[in-house]
Nucleic acid binder design. Sequence first.
DNA 1: ATGGTCCCCTGACCGC
DNA 2: TGCGGTCAGGGGACCA
Length: 254
Amino acid sequence: MPELPEVETTRRGILPHVCNKPITTLVVREHRLRWPVPKGLGRHLVGQTFSGVRRRAKYLLFDTAGGSLLVHLGMSGSLQFLSAPRPVQAHEHLDIGFADGSLLRLRDPRRFGSVLWAPAGAHRLLSRLGPEPLGEAFHGEYLYARSRGRRLAVKAFLMDQSIVVGVGNIYASEALFRAGIHPRRAAGRISRQRYQRLALAVRETLHAAIAAGGTSFRDFVDGSGKPGYFIQELRVYDRGGDPCPVCGRPLAQG
DNA sequence: ATGGTCCCCTGACCGC
DNA sequence: TGCGGTCAGGGGACCA
């Protein structure tokens, strides 16, 4: 499931291939994603070029002169750049074709992803997002302040995209483990000092995952079809029952 | 405002 | 080997 490192890996993989090339076609084979793919999307894209590809939270924004294509990979989505067309396989729902014959193809078996249009780069879905975990606004003091009075589990708190973006199940588990915080502890009952360790652990975990090209759990591949290798570095995610890397006792589920 | 539940969907997994 | 049931999982919508 693509979280921040996987989305960032995707962005870096396709960025050199899709910018400043005239868009000639949009083919939508399946409109039924998380939200319907907008009918008028082709009118926004065809004849334009992408001037850049940005990431905000787990969203990719493909910028054009008139607005941005907004792509979320959901649980099972991946984008692949193809230098020439190749036969369409199952779950390959959408192609953006360029003048040189190359194309960008979206595959998403579970269709929890979304492809939307954001006029002027703004969209309702982007408006309530918290700070980027690798940016300056995210730090221990921030987490401490936002968590006061909150009774939900710290893991759910960390996965709340209005608190901090990009952290999902995998990296929440890993960061909490690295910080030595139990995932079910109430967010409001964790000390300032521990939140400082947690903020650091989130940053370190995400940086390491990006450096490894993301985590290929199930079937994540980057923009050129290559898997990521961070799965080899996961210490606790999906390892319920395995021995704890620190104390040797069996890890609990979730 | 907060927190809990439901739902979208497919593939993996399990028991028979 | 085949088949039906169950469940995960991002995150918005909805409800108490």
